[in-house]
Lab assay of single mutants.
Amino acid sequence: MEVRTIKVFTTVDNINLHTQVVDMSMTYGQQFGPTYLDGADVTKIKPHNSHEGKTFYVLPNDDTLRVEAFEYYHTTDPSFLGRYMSALNHTKKWKYPQVNGLTSIKWADNNCYLATALLTLQQIELKFNPPALQDAYYRARAGEAANFCALILAYCNKTVGELGDVRETMSYLFQHANLDSCKRVLNVVCKTCGQQQTTLKGVEAVMYMGTLSYEQFKKGVQIPCTCGKQATKYLVQQESPFVMMSAPPAQYELKHGTFTCASEYTGNYQCGHYKHITSKETLYCIDGALLTKSSEYKGPITDVFYKENSYTTTIK
């Protein structure tokens, strides 16, 4: 009895394709271990004539594949690729409408935090270190965002349907971005203890939790000093293409032309909904596939993004 075979390709990165001759009487799992086709788990399936010449994702289970996976995804987590594939199996079914010149995501599976993050990423200057993220990001900007969303979920250790947080998501993504040249110098002034300067680099240099107003941050924000008295913390120097200011959701007025974009969060910790506000020729609110415009805006804002380049204080 002759062994019926077909020729397929296996890959971990969709760049390096490895030619395989597979036995049609055995499952993919018996031949390769966990195997995925377009995100779908085909591990328990036997090869079919229609699979001839198709590319299958496999887990990096030998040295060659491990090197290829690390170079593309910059992670050695053995569960990463499987999590990416199972997320992709959902995100490829989502709709990605162009809204006001940006790629958004039609609401499904509690994905409003991903839509808000995706919209924000198209408006701030950011370059990702893992080629996987950078490639998928370019495709997302062009309207094909399924891979990018699935990668975000995998890097953030999230599953489809789980509630997510924009600030946490951005923080994970910033860790995989090139923020080497970003720098922030802060000064804390206390009447009792004097003053202390701190220099922050990388992710810490672009994120701040405690106030939404970048102007206020430049002037000074009140913080408790270690001595128990009130101290003032203010920005001395900022070198970065953008800054992200966050605070627990509270009524906040966004003035046209003073910011790049913002995240609105309605609801409580267990259950809520994100919308995205962007400042173009007027203010726009993007909620999944829905767009509304207004000249002014007041609502429960939790993150505001500002364009920056270089700032030095005039406070002496």
Rank of each mutant, 00 (worst) to 15 (best):
I223Q: 09
E264M: 11
S294T: 14
R4D: 13
E2C: 12
Q98C: 11
N268L: 13
D77A: 07
E71Q: 10
H51E: 11
T10C: 13
N14Y: 07
T282Y: 12
V22P: 10
P97E: 10
A289R: 05
N16M: 08
S310C: 09
I286M: 06
V188T: 15
A247L: 05
T159C: 14
K307D: 09
L290Q: 15
L37Y: 13
D77H: 06
V58D: 04
H276F: 11
C227W: 01
Q134T: 11
E215R: 06
T27N: 15
S263H: 15
H276I: 05
E144Q: 10
P224E: 11
L290I: 15
K93H: 15
Q196L: 10
Q270Y: 07
Q270R: 08
A177C: 15
T312V: 14
E308S: 09
A136S: 10
L17M: 11
T10A: 10
S86G: 11
L133R: 03
T302D: 00
V189W: 08
T103H: 06
T169H: 03
P60H: 07
M85W: 11
M209T: 15
L133H: 03
N100A: 14
G53K: 13
G143Q: 04
Y36E: 02
Y306C: 00
V243Q: 02
Y137H: 07
S171F: 15
E239V: 13
C227Y: 01
Q196K: 13
T120R: 02
Y155I: 04
K92H: 07
S295C: 08
T76M: 15
I6V: 14
C227A: 01
D63Y: 08
G143W: 02
N178Q: 10
Y234R: 10
L114R: 03
G299V: 04
D13R: 05
Y265M: 00
K298N: 13
A142N: 14
G164I: 01
T226N: 13
Q251E: 15
Y252L: 08
L179E: 03
L153R: 00
T313G: 11
T76N: 09
D109G: 04
H48Q: 15
M170C: 09
P241L: 05
Q31K: 12
F80E: 05
Q251Y: 12
F9Q: 13
G210I: 00
Y284H: 10
Q175L: 08
C149L: 09
A142Y: 11
I223V: 15
E52I: 12
A108C: 13
L179A: 04
K7F: 11
V160C: 08
